[in-house]
C-alpha cells in the first residue's frame, strides 16, 4: 500500500501480470528509474573523483572456492575508506567481489542479489551458476555508458556449481565479456602483483584453509607493491574479507579467524619479507 504511490491501494496491474521471473526485467517495465542502466549520462565526458575499490582474488580448491578482497578504497592519491567491504554473498552458493567505482559497484551487487533471490522465489528453483554468471554480464553491459566516462565496474564472480560439484570462478571485462578461470584469478589495481603471487602458490590439491592462506598471501603481495591496495591493518584489526563457498553453502570467515591467518603470515614475513619461496625447478 505504502509502496504503491501511483494509484489506489491495490497491487498495480503490472504486478499481477504473469511474465518474467527476472526482477530487472520487471523493474524495467514498471519503475525503470530504479535501474542503474537507465540513468541518463552527461553529454560531454567529465572526470569524476569517486572512491575506487581495488584488489580481489579468488582461488578454487577441490570441493569449493575462496574469494578474498582487501579493505581499501582510494580516491586519486587519497585513501577514501580503509574498511570498505568488496566481497559480498550473491546468494547461498556464490559470492561476488568488486573492483572499480565503489558506489556503482555496490549498487550493482545489490541489484544482482535481488535478481537471484527473486528468480528463486518466483520459480521455486535456483538458477544455474552459469545462468547467474550471465545475468551479471548483462548488468555490466548496462553500465557501459558509465564505464566510458571512467566509472567502470569490474566484478569477479565465484560460486559452487551444485550440478557439477565444483567451485568455479568467472572473470569479467568492462564490456561484460566473461571467462571461466581455471584455478585462480585476481582483479583490480593490485591484480598484477596478486596474480604473480597466486601463480607461485597455487596447487590443485589445496585444502580450504590453505586456499584462504594463499589468497591472503596474494593480497599481502599486492599491497606490498600497489599503493591502492590495503594490507592487513593489524593495529585497527581490519583484515581482508574472506568468503568460502562449498557444498554446504557460503561461509564468510569471522575477523578473528582471518586475523589468525594474518598473524601467521605476518610472523613468517618478519623473517622472509617477500613471502614463501617457490622451488626453482
Amino acid at each position: 500500500m505504502e509502496a504503491n504511490t501511483r494509484g489506489t491501494g491495490r497491487l498495480p496491474a503490472a504486478f499481477l501480470t504473469p511474465g518474467s521471473s527476472s526482477f530487472t526485467e520487471f523493474l524495467d517495465a514498471y519503475q525503470p528509474e530504479l535501474l542503474p542502466s537507465r540513468r541518463t549520462l552527461p553529454a560531454t565526458p567529465v572526470t569524476v573523483e569517486a572512491p575506487h575499490g581495488t584488489t580481489i582474488v579468488a582461488v578454487t580448491f577441490p570441493g569449493g572456492v575462496v574469494m578474498a578482497g582487501d579493505r581499501r578504497a582510494t580516491m586519486g592519491n587519497l585513501i577514501a575508506q580503509r574498511d570498505i567491504e568488496k566481497v559480498f554473498p550473491a546468494d547461498e552458493y556464490s559470492c561476488v567481489g568488486i573492483a572499480g567505482t565503489a558506489g556503482l559497484a555496490v549498487e550493482m551487487v545489490r541489484l544482482f542479489q535481488v535478481e537471484l533471490e527473486h528468480y528463486e522465489k518466483i520459480e521455486g528453483a535456483t538458477m544455474s551458476l552459469e545462468g547467474k554468471a550471465n545475468r551479471l554480464s548483462q548488468m555490466i553491459r548496462g553500465n557501459l555508458g558509465m564505464a566510458m566516462q571512467g566509472l567502470a565496474v569490474v566484478p569477479l564472480y565465484a560460486g559452487f556449481d551444485v550440478g557439477l560439484g565444483i567451485g568455479r570462478i568467472y572473470n569479467y571485462d568492462v564490456t561484460g565479456g566473461r571467462s571461466v578461470e581455471q584455478g585462480f584469478t585476481s582483479v583490480g589495481s593490485g591484480s598484477l602483483f596478486a596474480r604473480g603471487s597466486l601463480k607461485k602458490l597455487y596447487r590443485d590439491d589445496l585444502s580450504a584453509e590453505d586456499a584462504v592462506t594463499v589468497c591472503v598471501q596474494a593480497l599481502y603481495d599486492a599491497a606490498d607493491d600497489d599503493s591502492a591496495t590495503g594490507g592487513p591493518d593489524v593495529s585497527r584489526k581490519i583484515y581482508p574479507i574472506v568468503t568460502v563457498v562449498t557444498e554446504d553453502g557460503l561461509d564468510r570467515w569471522s575477523d578473528e579467524r582471518v586475523g589468525g591467518v594474518v598473524q601467521t603470515i605476518l610472523g613468517e614475513r618478519l623473517i622472509r619479507p617477500n613471502g614463501p619461496n617457490a622451488p626453482v625447478n
Partner: peptide
C-alpha cells in the same frame, strides 16, 4: 497474487531497506 506479493516485497526491499518489508504492509 503470490507473484505480485514477491514483486511488491522485492521492489520495496530494493528501493528502501530489507527491514521495511512487513507482513502488515
Amino acid at each position: 497474487l503470490r507473484i505480485g506479493g514477491v514483486r511488491y516485497a522485492d521492489i520495496r526491499g530494493y528501493s528502501y531497506a530489507r527491514h521495511d518489508v512487513t507482513a502488515r504492509g
